[in-house]
Amino acid sequence: MLVKNTFFALVVSSFSVSASVDKTDWTPTPQQFKYCTVCHGNQLMGNPNIGAPRLSGLSAWYIEKQLQAFKQGKRGMPDQSVPAHEMQSMVKELSDEQIHQAAIWASKTQSPVPSETIVADAKAGESLYKQCAACHGADGKGNQTIGAPALAGLHDWYLLNQFDAFKSGSRGNVQGDSQAQQMQAAANLVNSEQDLKAIVAYIQQLEKHEEHN
């Protein structure tokens, strides 16, 4: 250890330490999950520089399912994307109970809605989104009964990445996971990059509308 007890005893005496300004919105990070916020950021707000998606706003059931998919090698194998594999190595050593707890905590976090990074025709996206709405809901909030996650509130760059992953088969190509396979099939119905971006731009707007309510 480089730093010995010398400094631990010193409380930031001359610095007035106050309770947080935004305490009402703030969910503490459990000690065992402090690694998560290194990449996913404060309140799991996401960090495009690391390729880490925003997780606040997702449902616990979906987060748990995905963490299990990482653990079981259905997502994030070395031949897939680098951030996905980085995620896999984080989850590999977690127990089922830890995964369960992590999902509950993540679903409680609250963070600002991400701003758009993609310029596209959200209006055109609105009609294209209708085919997605059947599963993910008109409001983009998802549907647990059929295993469709919320899309509203995810970063647009992340939605694009995942869409590409489904399309290329690096995600969703899992035997026995009919929901993932269904999404893979759906991804192949979108033909152009332009359409895809329009859909993503529309999804971005959903959460914004929600914020104004």
Binding site: V17, A19, P28, T29, T37
Partner: peptide, 15 residues
């Protein structure tokens, strides 16, 4: 104003 989290506690300091 800086907020940092330490042992699950959020501390806010003004410098």
């Amino acid at each position: 104003e800086i907020a940092y989290e330490q042992a699950g506690k959020l501390n806010t300091i003004k410098v």
